[in-house]
Design a protein around this nucleic acid. Structure first.
Lengths: 344, 344
DNA sequence: AGAAAGGATGGTAGCGCTATCATTCGCAGC
DNA sequence: GCTGCGAATGATAGCGCTACCATCCTTTCT
């Protein structure tokens, strides 16, 4: 008897990849035992496990995870959807997620929405098609279709960055309070003419929430809360532009509250190039606690947000849920820290 | 006849997900026609295509990509392996890849090696198990096992960042030449006591290659080429530390050639905090052309590497190969630009 | 009009793996 | 010796989809 395909049989194998059956044959066990030896090592005898591993080694077997996932309907993939990669904040969250998830044998499927909720919906659809074990997405806002899709999905959903009415799990911080906090700080420092500068607040709506907090505090102090909105998302260049606009439209401004540190640092560096003294001529505050802000002179006043911790905490909460344990706190406030530097 | 499972039949469907067969039934066509309507729309009649799409819409069908990939042994996944996410350089490459790949319906599977080649091997194994359509990895160096695995893999492999003897496709720049270029610039500017500062050059070996170029130029000019190697990878903090070490060990140093802009900018800002004049007391140069370097005063002398372009070019080359077209240039040198700022 | 060519559709048989159930085996307990 | 039990192993039947081939129904050409 040859190993040639029996004529008349449909022959479809295209890749010459080693299969589990071949491993099993080489190890002298049945395919299912080979499968168990690899995936549930405690359920087979030492002898079987050893001969399977030897065969795997010898044949250079690489498990076909697609077939395994189809059969078990578990994929060990975690979808991660962020609005941007340019913004280092999300990269740090991903970093935190990855550390923990990869250690547990999960792989990350990365999606980028570019701050577009329709794009998010498309990504979610695709990712559900991969039978992801869990989904992590930045933010609580989704479009209707996306919301419906996720609501009917029975796997863990982790919404990160902000706190609020989440679909399932939630790790983040309260951006309104963060905005209030910085505004209070600026007022306490004696500034009265304070401008908030953000970029595309309808997209980066968390920056908008911080502005809400900021505005509430200023109004409570009977101060005006002017807003300058830029068109390009956070970058040093945009920060310089923001400074210019503030000086042009609100010449008596004493302090600028920027939506993030990229903008703030850009403005600070631009101010120095123009010979403006910070904070004497103009005070500058940011948000996020990027390393850059700590290295400029004067040091940037900012709010430290624990980004990697968000990622790690999100990951470990997911791992807990995925391993069948109950999660007691479905919502976790990671808080923030006001870091007062010399810039205010 | 009920729709209950016939007793005696093994029943395994766990998820109540809508399947293609259900869509087909609702649309009044066979499953295979429904499949074609979604994946090869030009191969079915308008009527069939329309009724299938209506049924998809009505039932909320989400294609099971795992099943599809298993059957077709094509996954539309592209594995991307980078050594670090903290280093924004790789994030920008990913950004460039993602833009192009997502537009073509490919999804990115992200892996992070932490500059560890054994980790890379593990990731490659996992990713091959996902039947990825292609693999992108940063760098040309792999361990033996990884090399063997990839050599026997018959899908496009794209090695990015550096140029050289690649396994398949290659997009990058010549780091040795880049190092030479900067060294020449410094010498042309009249500096004679020049120190190179890098971090973990055995891991970030591309920085090591730049040092090789740097050293060759200095030696050709009969100059010593001292090296200061730091233990922490690129960060502003490490840059400050590098400056301190140089001042301590090589007090007569006139210029420092840093392995990257993070280090250089950190040193520049630290120098200013200490009242050192740049470039009069100490000249500083970097590599990468990060925005930060362009916003400090004086502007940082650096070498602009086109990171996003690497990503985009890598992606479009892959797309070309994946769509069956021949790729004429398997290697692409994206080059670099010396950007002379006030810091040297 | 009839044949050839081409487009649309469908039946069947897998893709490589694992869930499920059945079987075998060894050993303790009476 | 026999039953009962759990551990180890195996046979079978899918997971949901698409490749492959066969069929059917148009269209076009001689």
């Amino acid at each position: 008897m040859s190993k040639e395909p029996i004529s008349g049989t449909k022959q479809r194998r295209r890749s010459d990849q080693v299969t589990l059956s071949q491993v099993a044959e080489a190890a002298g066990v049945s395919p299912i035992t080979a499968s168990r030896a690899l995936n549930h090592p405690d359920k087979v005898s030492d002898r079987a496990r050893h001969s399977v591993h030897t065969a795997v080694e010898r044949l250079g077997y690489v498990p076909n995870l697609i077939a395994g996932s189809l059969a078990s309907s578990r994929s060990r993939l975690v979808a991660v959807i962020v609005p941007s990669l340019v913004n280092t904040v999300f990269v740090e969250v991903i970093q935190g997620l990855q550390e923990t998830l990869e250690a547990q044998g999960y792989q990350i499927l990365l999606g980028n929405t570019d701050y577009d909720l329709d794009r998010e919906y498309q990504l979610v659809r695709t990712f559900l098609g991969w039978s992801c074990s869990a989904l992590v997405t930045a933010g609580l806002r989704h479009n209707q279709a996306c919301h419906t899709l996720l609501a009917n999905w029975n796997h863990p959903i982790m919404e990160v960055m902000e706190l609020g009415q989440a679909m399932d799990l939630n790790v983040g911080l309260d951006h309104v309070t963060a905005g209030r906090c910085m505004a209070s700080h600026l007022i306490k420092k004696g500034y009265r003419h304070i401008v908030y500068v953000g970029a595309r607040l309808s997209q980066d709506y968390r920056a908008g929430m911080r502005f809400e907090g900021h505005k509430a505090v200023l109004q409570a102090n009977r101060l005006a809360a002017p807003l300058v909105e830029l068109n390009t998302l956070g970058s040093l260049q945009a920060g310089a532009e923001g400074l210019a606009q503030v000086l042009a439209h609100y010449p008596q401004t004493q302090a600028i509250h920027f939506a993030n540190d990229d903008l703030a640092a850009g403005a600070l560096l631009a101010a120095q190039r123009q010979g403006l003294r910070v904070p004497e001529d103009i005070a500058i505050a940011g948000f996020n606690g990027l390393p850059l802000g700590q290295h400029v002179t004067p040091q940037l006043t900012t709010i430290l947000s624990p980004r990697e911790e968000i990622g790690r905490l999100a990951a470990s909460t997911l791992i807990q849920r995925l391993s069948g344990k109950a999660v007691e706190h479905r919502q976790h406030d990671v808080g923030f820290t006001l870091q007062a530097g010399g810039s205010t």
